[in-house]
Design a protein around this nucleic acid. Structure first.
Lengths: 150, 150
DNA sequence: TTTAATGCAAAAGATTTGCAACATG
DNA sequence: CATGTTGCAAATCTTTTGCATTAAA
């Protein structure tokens, strides 16, 4: 399952709009970094984003990738998921969705669920602070790791 | 809300039983590292565990803390939660529970919910691999951060 | 007494920062 | 043209590793 061209364009649109509204310059680097996260489903970490955009921008540096990814997160254009021993991964899918994460290799996949989207949280949670997002993380060993007998 | 003495003892019991069963030596360091995670609700990271046990074991080293925490995780005695830009946090609460995490400062609190415990996951998820745990992570700005105007 | 675990020191890995050069609006 | 952004190099912070010493069973 891949992301449809239409969806990628929509994400790029949103990115440009938000940047303009916030007075953030649309640099070559930022565009390619966002595009890289927006066009894949595999939730890359900073290093992976860096490697993947190098053929498009050979002189890009890893610190720009970090700066940009956190900027995009602050702007609400991407979300992060941290899977224990793994490095932080980035995701441009902003619609209601949840994650399956392999405990061993970090393999990560999205899934959607109406049931989950409609759950009511206990009142106690509201007393902790504001609630921006609720998402379910399912952990286990992915098929590949099971096959390898991990 | 603090953890009851009874509950801490129960966790220490389990820890000792599992170690004995697995032929893992019950060293002074391991006992104090596990106790530290077992007796608090605030999900400390490795550095925090290290600092907190230093008054009990002044010569303990940070690498032993790391080695021990991952060992405890492999043994299934603690679980980890990774909150984006924050370092990995550890939790000795093994019963069904979920987390509220502050997006800004990493403040983390547990909550329970029968509704959440009883949700059915889409079949698709089973096709990704084995399912060991399902937990909900609620993100937002905690009250303290809201008050500070972050 | 045997074997596993620790502490130390050093290495490795990941992320951030200061600053001069550069590109965008 | 003014200002924000980048790339570089270096610093910093976090985590892991090899190995001789020590402690648990």
């Amino acid at each position: 399952m891949t992301i449809k061209k239409k969806e990628i364009e929509k994400r790029m649109q949103l990115f440009e709009t938000v940047c303009r509204d916030e007075g953030i310059k649309l640099t070559h680097q930022r565009i390619e970094i966002f595009r890289e996260v927006a066009q894949t489903e595999d939730h890359p970490n900073a290093e992976q984003v860096f490697q993947r955009i190098r053929d498009r921008i050979p002189t890009v540096s890893i610190d720009t990738v970090y700066r940009t990814l956190w900027l995009l997160k602050d702007l609400g254009l991407i979300v992060t998921l941290g899977s224990s021993r793994e490095r932080t991964r980035f995701d441009a899918n902003l619609s209601n969705h949840h994650h399956y994460v392999c405990d061993h290799c970090g393999y990560t996949r999205d899934f959607v669920s109406d049931d989950l989207d409609n759950i009511t949280l206990p009142d106690l949670v509201g007393s902790f602070g504001e609630i921006d997002a609720t998402h379910v993380e399912v952990r286990g060993l992915c098929r590949q790791c099971v096959a390898k007998g991990r």
